[in-house]
Amino acid sequence: MAGATAEVLKVRRVSRPRALWRPLRENAIEGLALLGGVLLWEACGWLLPLPWLPPFSHVVAALAQFIESGVIGANVAVSLQGLAIGFGFSLVVGLTVGALMGRYRRVEQALDVYVYAMLLSPSMVFAPIFFAIFGLSDMARIAVIVMYALFVIIINTSTGVRTVDPALVEMARSFGAGERQLFLRILLPASLPLVFAGIRLGMGRAVKGMINGEMFIALVGLGALAQKYGSQFEASKVFAIALVVLIVALFANWIVQIIEQRLTRWAD
């Protein structure tokens, strides 16, 4: 047994360099497509005298300058703070309400109209209301993030809990599980894939809510920065900020994915 494990370890160690190369080789076409796009952008930037299309290298230069001067660092920190609070709140409320709606039909009937309407309506329309009520405080941009992220988490959680195989629930009941045990041992783990789909969508929407809300309030964060350089029509700086937001979005998504893999390892 021990020998077998050692064997596996050895094989894995040997194949590691190849494992590093494999994704590169397998995604060669995708990589080339992206590289082609960047080169095309660069060429168009130099050849066409369009004020809104600076060469890609200028965008990278603007980004480097931002990072060096520390402007980006400070604003990313502010934005991420709002994102963490807004998304954290959406997560706690969304999972709780969603689980209750999935478990108890009466709760679902009581709330479904509102959740459905809020999910369909453009979340940004609430920005003027929050701005009017909360003013320039952080509450306004956090509230916008919550409006973006909350409802998709609720919907996915309630669907996940509701569609858990009733045979599992019955079995747990017949073995004497109480409501608490039923929730923690059966409903929660069985609904996890759908719940995490909701969390992933919610995170994506939260990042959008973050940037849109900050652009609307235009006081702090990446959104304010984008609004500032946007109104001065500094294209390369605007592109650089969009690039940073993209990185933030990918980073947030990556964190959710890591947690998901940890928690749903049993599923494979």
Partner: peptide, 10 residues
């Protein structure tokens, strides 16, 4: 993944 709103000025 790209945020559209900041690109509106462009």
């Amino acid at each position: 993944a790209v945020p559209v709103a900041p690109l509106i000025p462009i």
